[in-house]
């Protein structure tokens, strides 16, 4: 499995606080990778570094073998890297459909007619079609999160970075989210997913990495990782032998 996304020794510090400490990992083509770690561990920061909204202090990021470390965020998106924001960032004065349309025309570079078809399809799959003409500024948090996913999908990414999209969903909604994401995987999209709702994560991902204080502290098969002493201690915040 060739790596589609690769981080090699990525460094980032805000003053004395290191938020990405020599991070190296890779994502295989078509793979789904889960990322867990306590609050403030640097998971979202890592997404900011990968998508280019934050510059790295050192190390390299490669997309399909190409060094994108110095690329601006917009170029990385056009090259196939799309994300959802943990704190939703909707275009408030535009409708849900228009939000998706931005991604389809700018990120995916589609012509208007193709973009319209893609947006309608994605909104249907993410359960937002009914509200297509609603202004994004007036949505509930849950709807905003769904819009984050829909918009990222409309950018037609090769690698989709999802940042905590399952929080606050009902069981039924969570199931349909898992179906949607597994559906995306079947179309060949590679996924990195930061999530605290572990059971949702485990239903999708092939592999898990654990981040704490900006460092990758564990990596491997999801069940094995979840059962390991180290992860229980650091991620769940309980002493394994207490």
């Amino acid at each position: 499995m060739a790596a589609i996304l690769e981080l090699a020794g990525v460094l980032k510090a805000f003053g004395a606080i290191t938020v990405a400490d020599d991070q190296s990992w890779s994502l295989g083509t078509g793979e789904a990778l889960g990322v867990i770690g306590p609050n403030g561990a640097g998971k979202t920061t890592m997404f900011n570094l990968v998508t280019g909204t934050l510059p790295v202090d050192g190390g390299a990021i490669r997309l399909a073998g190409e060094d994108i470390t110095d690329w601006p965020a917009a170029r990385r998106c056009r090259a196939g890297l799309a994300r959802s924001f943990q704190v939703p960032q909707p275009f408030g004065a535009m409708t849900i459909f228009e939000n998706a349309f931005v991604a389809a025309t700018q990120g995916a570079g589609l012509a208007p007619a193709e973009a319209e078809d893609l947006c309608l399809d994605v909104l249907d799959r993410t359960g937002l079609l009914r509200k297509a003409n609603t202004m994004a500024g007036g949505l509930t948090l849950l709807e905003r999160k769904r819009l984050e996913l829909a918009r990222a999908m409309c950018a037609k990414p090769r690698v989709l970075l999802l940042d905590e999209i399952a929080g606050g969903l009902t069981d039924h909604e969570c199931k349909s989210l898992i179906e949607t994401i597994n559906g995306l995987r079947s179309t060949g999209i590679s996924i990195v997913w930061i999530e605290h709702v572990v059971h949702a994560l485990l239903a999708v991902v092939d592999r898990l990495i654990v981040i704490d204080f900006g460092r990758k502290i564990a990596e491997g098969e999801p069940r094995a990782i979840m059962d390991s002493r180290e992860v229980r201690k650091i991620y769940l915040g309980i002493e394994a032998d207490a």
């Binding site: 917009a74 998106c77 535009m94 931005v102 991604a103």
Partner: peptide, 24 residues
């Protein structure tokens, strides 16, 4: 135009705009 779509996105949210491929 296509660029107008980008401009309205920038008007609403620059962070989301650049993350969706718009050269601000």
């Amino acid at each position: 135009s296509r660029r107008g779509v980008a401009l309205m996105a920038i008007r609403d949210n620059e962070l989301a705009a650049k993350s969706l491929g718009i050269d601000i």
